[in-house]
């Protein structure tokens, strides 16, 4: 049980929580991917990774903006810059350090595959027009992230011995952080009741099938599905990596909070 979470009572509270959970994942992962800027393995990939990072941070920004409207906060930056790590709702998968290119690709692939199914289902059930509009718009970009990362999983897995080994190591290392994608807590249950979220178990099999098919096509072994899974990030129980990420991201804004920075 989290120290701070209160279970949303109204539909609006549930909506805000849902927006923040989606946004935090995207901001933190987008931030990590943006660390590649200028350091990519080839120019085409510098472009593609910057593009994906930009999409994710853009998605987060739009979701935060809506949450700020609902809660009467100043703007989207309130959530990105003025909350501490125990308040962030992103899953640990998003906050792990950048890693090598194989790790980056494995992470984008697993996350985008999940987002693909999640958004597809959400678009069907979410009644709130503004939220649904965002989901539809972002879904188009998620399809690109999925396609791009899937192509690289195949190239790395079925490329050279070295790339195969690196891709295998990446999936093995990241696997224990995939459990959180599907975990549902009381906050999610309220959102599900109010048609703002979906039961992730409804598409877990589809997700697994796409992941397993891709890994097999890439000649990679599927990691042990029954292994220990990290959990707790949605309730603010993060890894040690998030604090440092936020220290870097927030320092300037927090040092001069009264200054105009937009």
């Amino acid at each position: 049980m989290s120290t701070f979470d209160t279970i949303p009572k109204t539909k609006q509270e549930a909506l805000v929580e849902t927006l923040l959970r989606l946004a935090d994942d995207r901001l933190i992962l987008g931030h990590r991917i943006s660390e590649w800027a200028g350091h990519g393995p080839e120019l085409e990939e510098d472009l593609a990774l910057a593009n994906i990072a930009l999409d994710m941070i853009g998605h987060a920004s739009a979701l935060y903006t809506y949450a700020a409207e609902l809660e009467g906060k100043a703007d989207e930056d309130h959530y990105a810059y003025f909350r501490d790590d125990i308040d962030f709702k992103n899953i640990a998968l998003c906050e792990l350090p950048r890693g090598d290119f194989a790790f980056t690709i494995a992470r984008i692939f697993l996350f985008s595959t999940f987002s693909y199914f999640l958004y597809q289902k959400l678009i069907d059930i979410v009644e709130d027009e503004q939220f649904n509009g965002m989901l539809q718009k972002h879904f188009k970009e998620i399809k690109y992230h999925l396609r791009h990362s899937r192509e690289w999983v195949l190239r790395l897995g079925d490329g050279t011995d070295e790339s195969h080994q690196r891709a295998q190591d990446a999936f093995n290392e990241i696997w224990m952080y995939t459990g959180e994608l599907f975990n549902l807590d009381e906050v999610d249950q309220v959102a599900i009741q109010k048609n703002l979220f979906v039961d992730t178990l409804d598409f877990r099999e589809e997700w697994e099938k796409l992941v397993v098919d891709t890994l097999e096509e890439a000649t990679l072994n599927v990691p042990d599905m029954e292994q220990y899974m990290f959990s707790g990030s949605r309730q603010g129980r993060h890894t040690e990596h998030l604090g440092r990420l936020l220290a870097e991201m927030q320092f300037l804004r927090r040092s001069y909070p009264d200054a105009e920075w937009k």
Binding site: L27, H31, S34, E35, A37, G38, G40, L43, D46, L47, A50, N51, A53, L54, I57, G58, A60, S61, Y64, E76, D77, A80, Y81, E248, M249, F251, L252, R253, Y256, A259, W261, K262
Partner: peptide, 21 residues
């Protein structure tokens, strides 16, 4: 990029660096 002081400025900078690539 990782220290830009607002989300807007972070995106502007990331897009600029992407343009340079």
């Amino acid at each position: 990029i990782t220290r830009a002081p607002s989300l807007k400025r972070k995106m502007v900078l990331l897009a600029k660096v992407q343009d340079e690539a």
